[in-house]
């Protein structure tokens, strides 16, 4: 059941957390990824935040491309194809998965695990991708920009940290917006999963007891929420959403209610994550290595 709030001139908002509603809204032509900034001050502020996710020549990051975008379709299928060579890719990132496995098993690691994760994700795109403290700080700055409060956002923008972060991420990604998205935004979900795996191992003998699939099932979450907008009014799963409603799809809440729906990757949706196969494969590999005591 959608929760709706309207304060004229300020916000028109709908939260969806029912899995069927979330899936229906995601597939509906009424709900769009691009935000216009119309409908209220909050909408304007959020749209302005997300508008920065463009390369200097204007290329739009993949998570903000609309359904009918031909380039989105092409890039999505190309990337999905590239990430489908699981065996080759797992071999390529074996040093990183080994380090993360050690971290999960023992809590010790030469470099902070989040940097290792960023490097692992980057190397799926470019074998010589090298993450550093600076690159991870850049990714964290962008994550803060997206989900942080207005004061943090103001400080990021006014200090120039936001622009520096964007420049660094895009430069390291060699202008590839999919790589930029993966190494700046999507990687945080893997970092969180690794931390959950570590907690799972730290507190009991889960490493011996749990198989890889069970471990992933309990540690891999969906992003907390994503933001969409209705351009015109329309019905989604019986609920009427007025024009210019900011639609918050609460993915993690929906996933918990219906884990089999694969909401974390929008499996079978038009915007199915191209990494839907490689991410679980990486996590399985890491867990198995941790279990085997290999690094």
């Amino acid at each position: 059941m959608a929760i709706k709030i309207t304060i004229p001139g300020i916000i028109r908002l709908a939260w969806l957390s029912d899995p069927d509603e979330v899936i229906a809204a995601n597939d509906s032509g009424v709900v769009q990824r691009s935000l216009s900034g119309l409908g209220g001050l909050v909408q304007r502020s959020i749209a302005a935040k997300l508008a920065v996710f463009r390369t200097p020549d204007g290329d739009i990051w993949p998570a903000f491309r609309n359904r009918g975008d031909p380039l989105r379709r092409t890039r999505q299928s190309d990337l999905e194809q590239a990430l489908s060579h699981t065996r080759v890719l797992l071999k390529r990132v074996a040093p990183e998965t080994g380090a993360l496995a050690t971290y999960i098993r023992s809590g010790s690691i030469n470099r902070p695990p989040e940097i290792v994760v960023q490097q692992m994700v980057g190397r799926l795109f470019f074998p010589d991708y090298a993450a550093s403290e600076e690159s991870y700080d850049a990714a964290r700055a962008l994550q803060t920009w997206v989900s942080g409060g207005p004061i943090k956002s103001y400080l990021l923008k006014s200090s120039g940290a936001l622009e520096r972060a964007l420049d660094l991420i895009v430069t390291l990604a060699r202008g590839d917006t999919s790589c930029a998205h993966a190494t700046a935004i999507a990687m945080h979900n893997i970092v969180d999963t690794i931390e959950r795996m570590r907690r799972l191992v730290k507190t009991s003998d889960n490493l011996e007891k749990l198989g890889a699939q069970d471990a992933i099932a309990s540690t891999l979450h969906a992003p907390k929420q994503v933001v969409r907008e209705t351009r015109d009014g329309g019905r989604v799963c019986g609920a009427y959403l007025g024009a210019r409603t900011l639609v918050i799809l609460r993915l993690e809440a929906a996933r918990r209610q219906k884990p089999e729906a694969d909401i974390e990757f929008f499996a079978k949706g038009w915007n199915q994550c191209p990494a839907h196969a490689i991410v679980p494969a990486l996590l399985v590999d890491i867990w198995k290595k941790a279990k085997a005591g290999k690094s």
Binding site: R54, G58, D59, G68, P70
Partner: peptide, 8 residues
């Protein structure tokens, strides 16, 4: 040819 920023 379409520019990348045209979107949909």
């Amino acid at each position: 040819d379409r520019e990348a920023w045209l979107g949909a």
